[in-house]
Amino acid sequence: MTAAPQPTAAGAVASLDDVGVRFDFDHLGRVVTPGLSRFRRITASAWGLRHVELRLDPGEGLALVGPTGSGKTTLLRVLAAVVLPDEGTYEVRGRVGSLLATDAGLASLLTGRENAELLGVLAGLTLEETRAQMEAVDARSHLGAAFDRPVHTYSQGMRARLGLSVVQAIEPDVLLLDEVFEALDHEYRAVVEQLAKDVRARGGVVVAAGHDHHALERVCPRAAWLEEGRIRLEGPFEEVIPAYLAA
């Protein structure tokens, strides 16, 4: 069953059963989708994810580790329903808050406030609710006057702070973070850690990918080591990371 994330009072559960995501390409290396395959011939395929099995019960936190291109971001995108699996089944219940793109999903020509309004509504809040949250988002982001400036003037860290503040506003049941710690200063890392703890304490789940293992360990008791789109090892963080680093 491929369920779109829906708000639920019963806590969040994410599960993937034999999930695979395939990328098809034409002779020029351009991505070919099923619709496009009527007009463009597929000459090569690659699996971004293959045979991925995962289950996240309420309150769990999972770190995704692995080399660049191992499938961490694709897995997060499946959990966010941004990418649908080409094989297998998945289920994600609860409101999803995600920071997956390097620019935190922000439009660079819009101000911080305008981006917050856009992302809040897209994430599932009503326009009224989003506007009611605006001052809180402003305060939490610690952007000051920059909140009303275009995002293209922001540093990577400022973008991440704005994205996180919006995520906090939507009170997610499923928190998905892709290399967020790498962009943040120490002060704001503590904010992320607190947000992750709050989500898990509410019965939600946290899935975070990155290369800063110390930061990941503070929010995720479990870890999954991905390699070439497959989970090579999954278990307690203190067991998976040494195995990954030793490989």
Partner: peptide, 12 residues
């Protein structure tokens, strides 16, 4: 393409 950053970040 204008909304690619949002499309890559969240479902809507």
């Amino acid at each position: 393409n204008l909304r690619s950053s949002i499309i890559l970040n969240m479902k809507f």
